[in-house]
Design a protein around this nucleic acid. Sequence first.
DNA 1: GAGAAATCGAACATAGTGTTCAGAAACGTA
DNA 2: TACGTTTCTGAACACTATGTTCGATTTCTC
Lengths: 194, 194
Amino acid sequence: MPQKVTDRRIQRTRQLLQDSLVALILEKGYESITVQDIIDRANVGRSTFYAHFQDKEDLFLSGFENLQSQFEQHLLGQSPSEINPWTLSLVMFQHAQEYQRVYKALVGERGGHTMLSHLQRYMSAHIGEHLKSHLPVRRKEQIPLEILTLYIYSTLTSLLTWWLDHDMPYPAEQINDMFRQLTQPTVESILQQA
Amino acid sequence: MPQKVTDRRIQRTRQLLQDSLVALILEKGYESITVQDIIDRANVGRSTFYAHFQDKEDLFLSGFENLQSQFEQHLLGQSPSEINPWTLSLVMFQHAQEYQRVYKALVGERGGHTMLSHLQRYMSAHIGEHLKSHLPVRRKEQIPLEILTLYIYSTLTSLLTWWLDHDMPYPAEQINDMFRQLTQPTVESILQQA
DNA sequence: GAGAAATCGAACATAGTGTTCAGAAACGTA
DNA sequence: TACGTTTCTGAACACTATGTTCGATTTCTC
């Protein structure tokens, strides 16, 4: 049973802190930021910071979780006819295009590597799901599913961070097409091994 | 003009510190290690540590550089008939197999991500070199060379760290074969676009 | 054993973390 | 407007880790 306005106040403080962190990451990189930097930028008292978040990493992750649930909303709104790794990736690149700043801070090179393991769990689940459903019943187990999933995931994230760190020199559709050209032939050839 | 024996003493201390760091990384991960942990383990005085290395990261990198120059020795010793990304990768997997502990500590998941950018510069140079020499004079610039290089590099490193973190469930030749199966079709199809 | 080089470790200054708490400010209600 | 509640403030504090300094000590060389 949420209170009406005090909640809004809390929300505003959290947002302020998250925004400050994003700005600071883009300026000087995650590692070198101190809690003092963050609260100075946000004009928030020290104890307030610790009332909301355990530490810097907690703040970072809360922003990341925001982004993730927002992405899920976005995904539902788009609802591509079929969900496979390449429609999923397209939605992701488009979403990143729309929220450049936040993406670049949280997922890009300067953002530390904190979020990689979280993103990995999330995306790998989707990718693995798709692969499993397309798997021939009996295939030569030359390349295990786990590795194939890892392969797709690592290609996707390396493209994403490259794209963000180079300030998106291509539109989302084009970088996604590169992703498809890079991975689809391999995936199909492997899935079709009977 | 290096001195004879005192040099050996210095070398011993450096080695001790590097070994301690490796052991500690495998135990508790790079991030949570303090300088105190390292010198306690190595039985080395605090000021001695700082006489040899600037900080924890410097020590880490010195170990990484050791490994790298050792790898180059190894590469010369093997001298595959042709150096392409897949012979290079084989030598690398074999080298990693031989020096499991160090590789796992410095390149694996627990090793922080410090070395990724260094490894990237090194491997990408080799990979890009090979690709450039096999490039058709005029090709459709759908996928720039930089991205193709990144693709190969990221697949290689994600396989390598996965392999290390899972305690090498396959021999080097087999994991390298997976690497080839994953990347070769894509690379060839793209290089042959006239 | 004398001299040089390397190591030791205690002491220190500095910087960042996370907690506490009394007072101030903002808000909701009536 | 006045009241109580919630949230925010910021100074003070204890704590942990960093990196430096320097005189004492060990180790090696000849």
